[in-house]
């Protein structure tokens, strides 16, 4: 390799580094500007919506798609918001809870997915769902740094924070999915007549639960995030925390529920496990699939939950 080739190679490398760095920042700051105005869509808009109103509501729901689809916040409060997001776990929710104003009086319902806690493979990577707020929200940035879930390259190429979401942001910027001002975050699943046959087929499939063990081990990372919420509850005496697991169609393993119940009790957290609430109810109209209730089921459950909450006076 002669010096002429080295020069040309260096030129390509240096130019590529400079142009890619500049292009990355241009796109990142451009997407920041656009995404800040996006208030619809699960990945970005709902998070923006939540951050804009979180300290002005008196009822908040956190959790995954089951929280999002199962808890009708309007029954609890006219000023509530359901922050359930598809596919997220305790890492994501714990981080958001820690962004709340400690002084504000609020009822906080945290939907707990039992399987999340006994899954040995759970690695807290759901926290990456907050990456668009990296370097833009101090508490979220700290939590992301502490999690180690961001790639080292992300510290150089900021646009990685918008990985997978760029098209969705542009779509929701130009054509919002709904009127966010009237949206309280609750997204019930409506099963129309065309989908009933498929739903019945899904429900009739055998449950294969090979992982049910007598004494399940709690995932230490999930437990750490749960304890982080516990610490926050102690700093927020004005808030009421309620931890809930919503019903499943036919959960064949109860040892994990029992184990989690014991841990919640040890931590002194109010935990209601309704996994088997509708186990003997063979009415398929309550369900969309084995883990998600339909709008019919969700509304029945929300009323049941509200009654229980009122009668227990937490």
């Amino acid at each position: 390799m002669n010096s002429e080739i080295i020069k040309k190679l260096l030129k390509i490398v240096v130019l590529t580094l400079l142009i890619s760095y500049g292009l990355d920042k241009l796109v990142f700051f451009g997407l920041n500007k656009i995404s800040d105005k996006v208030m619809t869509g699960q990945a970005i808009g709902k998070l923006n919506h939540f951050l804009s109103l979180k300290d002005n509501t008196d009822f908040l729901v956190f959790g995954n798609s089951r929280a999002n689809r199962h808890i009708d916040v309007e029954l609890f409060s006219d000023n509530g918001f359901n922050m359930g997001i598809d596919g997220v776990g305790i890492a994501y929710n714990s981080t958001l809870i820690n962004t709340l104003n400690e002084e504000k009086k609020q009822l906080i319902l945290v939907h707990i997915d039992t399987k999340n806690f006994i899954d040995a493979n759970y690695d807290g990577s759901d926290i990456r769902g907050l990456k668009t707020k990296y370097q833009r929200d101090d508490k979220i940035t700290d939590a992301l740094n502490e999690s180690g879930e961001l790639s080292q390259l992300q510290r150089v190429f900021y646009s990685m924070n918008y990985n997978g979401n760029a098209i969705g942001i542009l779509k929701n910027y130009f054509k919002p999915s709904y009127d966010y001002k009237t949206h309280n975050g609750y997204d019930p699943l409506i099963v129309n007549s065309d989908q009933e046959t498929m739903r019945d087929l899904v429900l009739s499939k055998d449950n294969q639960n090979d992982e049910c063990v007598d004494n399940p081990k709690i995932n230490p990372l999930a437990l750490r995030y749960l304890k982080s919420i516990k610490t926050f509850t102690e700093k927020s005496p004005n808030k009421t925390f309620l931890f809930v697991t919503s019903p499943m169609y036919n959960d064949t393993c109860s040892t994990d529920n029992k184990k989690l119940g014991e841990i919640m009790q040890d931590l002194g957290l109010t935990y209601w496990d309704f996994t088997n609430l509708y186990k003997d109810n063979k009415d398929n109209s309550y369900w969309k699939d084995k883990t998600h209730m339909s709008k019919t089921g969700a509304e029945a459950f929300s009323i049941f939950l509200l009654d229980k909450y009122k009668s227990n006076k937490i």
Partner: peptide, 11 residues
Amino acid sequence: VSIIILMLCLF
């Protein structure tokens, strides 16, 4: 190459 890097970051 820079455009490809950007596309990789985004997608």
